[in-house]
Amino acid sequence: MEDLIIKYLLKKTNQAEREKLFSWIAQDQENEKQFIRLKKVYALTSVMDDADESKAWRKIKKRSFRSRQLKKLGISILKYAAILILSFIGYMQLDLNTKETAIIYHYVAAEGNQINFITLSDGSKIWLNPGSVLRIPSNFSEENRQVHLEGQGYFEIFHNDLNPFVVQIDDERVRVLGTKFNVNAYHPDYLELTLVDGRIQLYSKQQQVSELMPGEKLLFRYDDQSIEREWLENTDFYSSWRSGNLQFDNIRLTSILELLETWYSAEFSLDDPEIGEIPFTGTLLKEEGLGQALKLIRSSSNLRYRKSKQENKYIIEFYQQ
């Protein structure tokens, strides 16, 4: 049997042999122990003989040393659009030696209706939807990863087990263990989190209130701390907006309109709240403009709208035909 185990460890067994081995393991505790011992020794002593070391080193070099270069600049911002950065002294913090230390915050916000993209010094990427503001402390580093968000952001966080990334939204904190997720904090009453990949935990007032699985959407109400969970068949809607190419598959109208409001400086109203629950499926390109989006909604439902303009804002009222 030991020969079969070794053959298996060398990955040379066929399906029948694997079946034989695993039923043997399941038969008896002693068998399992023997297998585990051998597998552990093998795992700790083997060396991969055909891994492309040089290619791997180039990749590591790029990611490890790049982040160091960025650190010199503090935060590097890749401009997709005109970005407004305000830096000023946020507050004075008193440390134990009664030495005053100033923390300077960098604010990243959008000008107009642009989607912004920034890369932080730890390699994390963040997309900000129009009207959103990200606050980054000047002492942000690979060891201290905490940012504050208003509005909506899509995050691709560089995984670091020892230093979780924290996104703060007032009293709520999203603790991240390396992952892709969307945070929607536009609404004053609730926070919406959607996890595309990885693992995130939601903390409220220092207490962990929930943990998300990939493909899960969570609604957290601030007033009664209640949680609604939803499994999504497809998370595209929550991640595709960042490229200005919105894909939605059975997404209710309210969620789509929330996003369109921020994209086109528009305000929507529904003459019956039920309208907001109508699900839509399709694709919208941000650059094609509000008119195209409205056309699409009209052509795929029995909804009609009235459009008016107040100052710089479009007011759109939907009604059922």
Binding site: A56, N160, N163
Partner: peptide
């Protein structure tokens, strides 16, 4: 090799190894 003996996927195990080194550098 360590990762490969469990995940049984060369691409994944190389990624795992690379991530380990990037994390080592950071920490």
């Amino acid at each position: 090799a360590f990762s490969y003996s469990f995940v049984d996927d060369k691409y994944i195990s190389e990624n795992v190894s690379q991530e380990s080194f990037i994390n080592l550098w950071i920490n």
